[in-house]
Design a protein around this nucleic acid. Structure first.
Lengths: 182, 182
DNA sequence: TTGCTAACCGGAGACCGTCTCCGTATCGTG
DNA sequence: CACGATACGGAGACGGTCTCCGGTTAGCAA
């Protein structure tokens, strides 16, 4: 990759992160290109689909995911608190910008999506937490980890679309947690 | 309202119902106008915003909602089965076309949405079921009916966006139900 | 340094969906 | 039948997506 291409690439990713945070995942890509000081052509050559751009943005995100799961697993307290705490972190991780929860949750099971592998990292982080609780024997028998992702993703999605604040989200996560625990 | 206006109005609603069913809630409105044999101007005069059209489409829906709740309440069986059955019906009601679950669930708490009153009907139907179970004393103390709508709506939303089949939805509804029941 | 070529840029513009404006046509009443 | 109120519909402005290709530049080789 040529140096100027590299510069533009990085610039676009940086700007896109900012624009998505401000305006959500539906923001105009031409706007991103304009702010990055490049033509639309340049943007679309580097990122043919919107999701490719999202993929690049999420590069640093995967490290944060694992790290967050580690912290959650180190949590002192009851199983319920551990699970609930993780769920809240999970919601935070996928709610970086508007439209994120829906996008990430649906990409999780879509092999055609460029961000699927990144979503898998999240799914694996979740699995680590679930497995830990399963070992403790406090989970119901038939708990499927992908289902857990979908449930928590669903809560995050409605919260995102309804612009709910975290205080309204917590009780919903409690219901999900209680439904999973023995 | 003039007779020709009435005719066009009805025609548009009928066609829109069909198009939304085929292509989801994001379908092109010009396409709807074209199929209905009217100009875009006519469509947008009758329905200034997309949601006004949805509102008209849902006219007959409200009756079905109450009816469905009645049937669910008449259900023979355990409390859990009653709740689970209602949840499944609920998901079916809001999943008539792609994009429906998200739209309806977020409109429920949005006073600016033209379809809010219709969503309230659904919320009230849900409340009837929840109240009935509360009377039976099988629900946790702090169950909020709006939260229940959001939870089930969230499950329906991820199912809609991930194109999951009903068999994948059921276990998620079970988790929610179990989290609500004592 | 210079010259060359593959790699890259960027903007004009095609395409699509939303929505408006206003000249024209139609209804239905007197 | 005539006339005013009402409604129609299509041309077109607008904004977003994405492509194509003539022009430019980086970086290497001599």
């Amino acid at each position: 990759m040529r140096a100027d291409a590299r510069r533009n690439y990085d610039r676009i990713v940086e700007v896109a992160r900012e624009v998505f945070r401000e305006q959500g995942y539906d923001a105009s890509l031409d706007e991103v290109a304009k702010r990055a000081g490049v033509g639309p052509g340049t943007l679309y050559r580097h990122f043919p689909k919107r999701e490719n751009l999202l993929d690049a943005i999420m590069q640093s995100w995967v490290a944060k995911v694992s790290e967050t799961a580690d912290k959650a697993l180190a949590h002192e307290g009851s199983d319920r608190e551990l699970l609930l705490n993780w769920f809240q972190e999970y919601v935070g991780l996928i709610s970086q910008h508007r439209g994120g929860p829906a996008k990430i949750t649906s990409a999780m099971g879509d092999p055609a999506s460029p961000i699927m592998t990144k979503c898998q990292v999240l799914a694996q982080a979740n699995e680590r937490v679930i497995d830990r609780l399963r070992e403790d024997g406090c989970l119901r028998a038939d708990v499927d980890t992908l289902q857990v992702c979908r449930l928590v993703g669903g809560v995050a999605t409605v919260a995102d679309q309804g612009e709910l604040d975290p205080e309204a989200v917590r009780p919903m996560l409690e219901v999900v947690a209680d439904g999973l625990l023995k």
